[in-house]
Deep mutational scan, measured.
Amino acid sequence: MSIQHFRVALIPFFAAFCLPVFAHPETLVKVKDAEDQLGARVGYIELDLNSGKILESFRPEERFPMMSTFKVLLCGAVLSRVDAGQEQLGRRIHYSQNDLVEYSPVTEKHLTDGMTVRELCSAAITMSDNTAANLLLTTIGGPKELTAFLHNMGDHVTRLDRWEPELNEAIPNDERDTTMPAAMATTLRKLLTGELLTLASRQQLIDWMEADKVAGPLLRSALPAGWFIADKSGAGERGSRGIIAALGPDGKPSRIVVIYTTGSQATMDERNRQIAEIGASLIKHW
């Protein structure tokens, strides 16, 4: 067993022997301040990774656009098919120029040779490549099948209805392509620590998230040296922004954090800054 596999296998073990965790309302004060600064709703939840206990939450059962955070769930569904012998990570998928959609920095470079399922998941999570996500959605049967996968996990809230990039439209009061912070946090925890996926697939999923290259201005910008984070960000229309993450000190994750916002007129930089400040408060009061 590799060191990384050992780390993920012992996530519940280490967490069980940690000192009790206590909620700190100071972080919620910052979440509410972010709402004021952005002029928009902000949803927040913080779960203990081992027990699933909610440590703090704000608007945990209000719907927010998922945006690209759905790509972690998508690759979880792909990995479940791999575990069941219905898919192979090494299978190569070929596609054409007509398949390319807006923001496809990886797939646009491989029109000639195609990409493997493993490479597509890596591109979808680490670079948020939209064509990679659409190609992977095709392998599982489309958005409705991802929703069905989530329902089978016990998540009857999260739903995907459309493809990239239309799913980022974020129309107010439109339930399409949305989740709730509580539902997303619980589902992410199941994917990373539950028995739904094999140990190898859980490790692969967290490795992809740990290698995320496009979430630097968010929670990662607030992390002290030595902290662990595996995350996936999302951005959408109407001032929408979000991030889902597993993080913790001492090089291992111990909490799940989900943050979503929508309806702001603020710039992307300002949305990023507010999420980073929430992260800084979380870490300060850990």
Rank of each mutant, 00 (worst) to 15 (best):
L167P: 04
G194Y: 08
T186W: 15
R118V: 10
L199R: 12
S128K: 00
E270C: 12
R202M: 07
E102N: 10
L73V: 12
D129K: 00
C121Q: 02
P165H: 06
F228P: 01
F13R: 02
N272E: 06
R189T: 10
R59H: 09
R220Q: 04
L199H: 12
T178R: 02
L192D: 01
I11G: 08
W208M: 08
D36L: 15
I3E: 06
I229C: 10
R91D: 05
G239C: 03
T267P: 14
K252H: 14
L79C: 04
I45R: 03
L199E: 15
M268P: 07
Q97P: 14
P12Q: 10
A211H: 14
D231G: 04
E61Q: 14
S264G: 10
G236M: 02
T158S: 11
R41M: 11
S264W: 04
L135W: 02
S201E: 02
Q37P: 04
A235N: 05
I171P: 08
M66P: 01
D113Q: 12
R176L: 08
N272D: 09
R255V: 06
S128N: 00
S80D: 10
K144P: 11
Q274Y: 12
D250P: 09
Q37K: 15
E46N: 10
R81M: 08
A200Y: 12
T186A: 14
Q203I: 11
F64A: 01
M127R: 09
M67Y: 02
R81Y: 08
A182I: 15
A183E: 11
E210A: 10
L100N: 03
T262A: 08
Q4W: 08
D129H: 00
S264V: 05
N50I: 11
A245H: 00
R7F: 09
G142M: 02
I244P: 00
E56I: 05
F64K: 01
A222I: 13
G142Y: 02
R162E: 05
A266C: 14
A170Y: 12
V157P: 02
Q86E: 12
G141W: 03
L150I: 13
E175I: 14
D212H: 05
L137Y: 09
V214E: 05
D207Q: 13
A185E: 00
T186M: 15
R41I: 09
R220I: 03
F149P: 01
L160R: 01
V214N: 07
A211L: 13
M180S: 15
F70M: 14
I3P: 14
L89V: 06
L47H: 03
L146V: 11
F22V: 06
S104L: 01
L120K: 00
P253Q: 08
M184N: 01
D83C: 04
V8G: 08
A182W: 13
V214S: 07
R241D: 02
I278K: 00
G141I: 05
A170G: 13
D161M: 05
E175T: 14
T147H: 07
I93D: 02
W208R: 01
R41P: 10
V106P: 01
N130A: 03
V82F: 07
L38C: 07
F14H: 04
F6A: 07
T179C: 05
H151I: 10
D129R: 00
L167T: 08
L191F: 11
M127A: 08
L191P: 00
A23Y: 04
F70D: 01
L89F: 08
F22N: 10
F64H: 01
P181T: 05
L219K: 04
M184F: 09
E166F: 14
S281H: 13
K109S: 14
L192R: 01
D177T: 01
E175Q: 14
Y103M: 06
D177V: 01
I3W: 07
N152I: 09
H24R: 13
K71H: 00
M127Q: 11
F228I: 08
L38E: 06
I11Y: 11
L146D: 00
W227Q: 01
E56Q: 11
P105Q: 06
E35K: 03
E87K: 03
L137T: 07
R273T: 12
L55R: 09
D129T: 00
R92Y: 10
G114N: 05
G142A: 04
L100R: 05
V8Q: 13
S80H: 14
H24N: 15
H151S: 11
I244G: 02
H285P: 02
W163C: 12
M180E: 15
Q203H: 14
V157K: 15
F22K: 09
A280W: 11
G142H: 04
I229F: 03
R176C: 09
E166R: 12
A15F: 15
K213V: 11
N98D: 11
I206P: 01
G114S: 05
S80Y: 15
P12W: 12
D269I: 13
M115R: 05
T139H: 09
T198R: 09
F17E: 04
E164R: 01
D99W: 07
W163G: 09
L10G: 08
E108K: 11
I54L: 14
M268G: 07
R81D: 05
A16P: 09
M153K: 08
E108I: 12
G239L: 01
H285F: 15
I259T: 03
L219W: 04
P181C: 08
E56F: 04
G242H: 02
P20R: 13
V29T: 12
G263D: 09
E270L: 10
K30C: 15
T178F: 02
V257R: 00
V78W: 03
W163V: 13
P25N: 09
R202W: 03
L38T: 09
F17N: 08
L282H: 02
A77P: 01
L192Q: 04
V117Y: 03
V31M: 08
P181M: 02
F58Y: 15
C75S: 07
H110Q: 09
T27R: 03
V29I: 14
T126C: 11
L196E: 15
T178N: 03
I140M: 07
A84Q: 13
D113K: 12
I125W: 00
S2F: 11
N173W: 15
G90V: 12
E35C: 05
L73C: 08
T147N: 11
A77N: 13
V101I: 12
T179W: 00
H151F: 10
T186D: 14
G248K: 02
R92Q: 10
E56T: 12
